[in-house]
Amino acid sequence: MSWYVALVAVVGIERLAELVVAQRNLAWSRERGGVEFGSAHYPVMVVLHTGLLVGCLAEVFWLHRPFIPALGWPMLAVVIAAQGLRWWCISTLGRQWNTRVVVIPGAERVSGGPYRLMSHPNYVAVVAEGIALPLVHSAWITAAVFTVLNAVLLYTRINVENSALARLA
């Protein structure tokens, strides 16, 4: 089980790295007149994503969830693939990537990388990880609760983002 704690810790550290990149990009965007949209839902997103990590560990420890290889190994592969997709999104968007919805007036909408295949690939990574990370160690309650709450959040987030992106050239 200690390897699962390490996995969740690595994902948590990765999230902190994202926040560092996001803060740097937010400052860069604001210097160029960037405007933030939908800031009211951002704290909810932070709590939900933190809750995912805490829930993964809490459920495994308190409810003694087992590692089931036939489930755990494929879910680990999904977690790794989700991280790859997330960082592909981040590298494709470059300085325009952020954990917040920020639009720089006059900027062009990015249409390369995974964005040539779909509008919101980062959210595909979030959904996949939110299901797979808990299921690596059979934490199905955490997977289900996060998935439902995340669906509600993403409904709001994608609407805000689409509205904001409509302002780009």
Rank of each mutant, 00 (worst) to 15 (best):
residue 6 A to S: 09
residue 6 A to T: 09
residue 7 L to E: 12
residue 7 L to Y: 10
residue 9 A to D: 11
residue 9 A to C: 13
residue 10 V to P: 00
residue 10 V to N: 11
residue 11 V to K: 10
residue 11 V to E: 15
residue 12 G to S: 11
residue 13 I to K: 12
residue 13 I to H: 09
residue 14 E to P: 00
residue 15 R to K: 05
residue 18 E to Y: 11
residue 19 L to R: 09
residue 20 V to A: 12
residue 20 V to W: 13
residue 21 V to E: 08
residue 21 V to R: 08
residue 22 A to F: 05
residue 23 Q to T: 07
residue 25 N to L: 06
residue 26 L to E: 12
residue 27 A to F: 02
residue 27 A to L: 09
residue 28 W to P: 00
residue 28 W to G: 01
residue 28 W to D: 03
residue 29 S to I: 00
residue 30 R to D: 08
residue 30 R to V: 04
residue 31 E to D: 11
residue 32 R to M: 03
residue 33 G to Y: 01
residue 33 G to H: 05
residue 33 G to I: 02
residue 34 G to Y: 04
residue 34 G to M: 06
residue 36 E to Y: 02
residue 37 F to M: 07
residue 37 F to L: 05
residue 37 F to Q: 11
residue 39 S to K: 09
residue 39 S to T: 10
residue 39 S to G: 13
residue 40 A to F: 04
residue 41 H to I: 15
residue 41 H to W: 02
residue 41 H to S: 12
residue 42 Y to N: 14
residue 42 Y to A: 13
residue 43 P to G: 12
residue 43 P to R: 07
residue 44 V to F: 15
residue 44 V to A: 13
residue 45 M to F: 08
residue 45 M to W: 00
residue 45 M to V: 15
residue 46 V to H: 07
residue 47 V to C: 04
residue 47 V to S: 02
residue 50 T to Y: 04
residue 51 G to F: 10
residue 51 G to L: 11
residue 52 L to F: 12
residue 52 L to P: 14
residue 53 L to R: 04
residue 53 L to Y: 04
residue 54 V to K: 02
residue 54 V to L: 14
residue 55 G to I: 10
residue 56 C to V: 09
residue 58 A to W: 13
residue 60 V to I: 08
residue 60 V to N: 06
residue 60 V to K: 05
residue 60 V to M: 12
residue 60 V to H: 06
residue 62 W to Y: 09
residue 62 W to C: 06
residue 62 W to L: 15
residue 63 L to Y: 12
residue 63 L to K: 10
residue 63 L to V: 04
residue 65 R to D: 10
residue 68 I to N: 04
residue 68 I to G: 01
residue 69 P to D: 07
residue 69 P to Q: 00
residue 69 P to K: 00
